[in-house]
Amino acid sequence: MKLTLTVSPDFSPEKLAGWHIFNTWLQRKLDVDCHLEMFGSFAEQRAAIAADKIDLIYANPYDAAMLVREKGFVAVSHPMGLPDEAVVAVAANSSCQSVEDLKPGIKVVSSGDPDVSMMGMILLEPADLNAGNVTSETCSSYVLVAKQLMTGTADVGIFPARAYDGLSSMVRNSLRPLVRSEISVIRHMLLAGPNAAPLVPQLRTALTEMASVDKDAAILKDLGFSGWEASSQEDVEFMIDLMNTLTS
């Protein structure tokens, strides 16, 4: 059996080596040939999924419905205590003190992570802002989002909270968060496609035990995880229902 693993393209670049080491660990644990395929964009990754080229995916919740309903993926595991959250920020010298100070016509920049961008737009709703009355632009990195705010090219930036917290103090000091989501229930999940389905029980057990083995815990640390928790199919169905309530 040969499997292809991929990771949601919103992973932090510094975690790339960690995912390669994880893939090697996975091959050893499952005793299968597993290839890690990284994509530069969600569009490229979705094309590979559509062509049935993906067997295991650390998936953005935005893609869960498509993976489960259209491609028959099942839930495996999710990282412990690592929900996806968004930060909506402005330049430190902006006159806006709250979301409600923002006006239609502003320019909103994000790095294009689908779930975080969606959460960010929801956080702008109290100001009656939506995709129809703001100008949206996608940048290729969080640093470029920050740069647009710092140079006054954009009015509002939407960041994944972990990426915002990971910006250098110099950059963060030039920005000011208006609101940070505290949603807690939206998160990435590891899903298995039909080819990998027979391995799911073995994989779920191995992942759950990972944090208790010293050398495996080091691999987790490189991914920024403290451990994996088993996900049930109902967990991913609930995630799909949640995302359905949040998308228009």
Partner: peptide, 12 residues
């Protein structure tokens, strides 16, 4: 059923 509530705008 799943119900999710978010902050509404004052105008709404």
């Amino acid at each position: 059923f799943t119900s999710v509530r978010r902050k509404p705008s004052r105008s709404k």
